[in-house]
């Protein structure tokens, strides 16, 4: 079942519009609030629920397993590096608080800027290595696996590989 928006919490910032993979979260031209234009096409992927800075979006669970008073809420926090789920069952017997890390490093800081690292040498360009290889593949600092190094032969009919 689809997402819906708590109109009093939404401020029309449009983060859900940007993130929705199906492009079905739109801003209402009159009320300036987000709404789901095509509930039938909603995947319940929760991308907009996580993206909303005001927790203004919620998902209705399917009628066969979660009607009447259930709730699945989520808060994703890049600064703290965690995602927190609260799942309440409608029978009141289960109320789960789930917490999982989404990163081990300060968000977005540990990705290298590859236009600034030392450029690949001609020898690297002529090799079969990718960036950071062979260092990132093997512990013994050996070279990358090849058919030859692993004692393999190409079966006849398979071409274009050396």
């Amino acid at each position: 079942m689809p997402t819906f928006v708590y109109m009093t919490r939404c401020d029309g910032c449009g983060q859900c519009v940007d993130i929705c993979p199906s492009d079905i979260m739109h801003i209402d031209k009159v009320t300036r609030r987000a709404y789901n234009i095509e509930p039938n096409m909603c995947w319940e992927c929760y991308s907009c629920v996580k993206a909303c800075p005001h927790q203004a979006i919620d998902c209705r669970g399917y009628a066969d397993f979660a009607p009447l008073g259930h709730s699945v809420r989520v808060k994703r926090d890049e600064e703290k590096g965690v995602i927190a789920w609260r799942i309440k069952f409608r029978n009141g017997k289960k109320d789960m608080d789930l917490l999982a890390p989404i990163t081990t490093k300060p968000w977005g800081t540990c990705i290298p800027q590859l236009s600034d690292v030392p450029a690949p040498t001609q020898q690297q360009r002529d090799s079969q290595l990718l960036f950071n290889e062979p260092k990132y593949i093997r512990m013994d600092d050996g070279d990358i696996h090849t058919l030859k190094s692993n004692g393999l032969k190409l079966i006849e009919g398979v071409e274009g590989y050396s």
Binding site: G81, P101, I102, T103, T104, K105, P106, W107, C110, I111, L130, N132, E133, Y136, I137, I144, H145, L147, L152, L154, V158, G160, Y161
Partner: peptide, 23 residues
């Protein structure tokens, strides 16, 4: 040939993901 190529490079991709912060 494609399978072998994917398999020999996949570990370094995973190790990079871990460096970027993947738990």
């Amino acid at each position: 040939d494609l399978l072998f190529d994917m398999a020999r490079h996949v570990d370094s991709a995973v190790h990079q993901f871990e460096e970027w912060g993947m738990p």
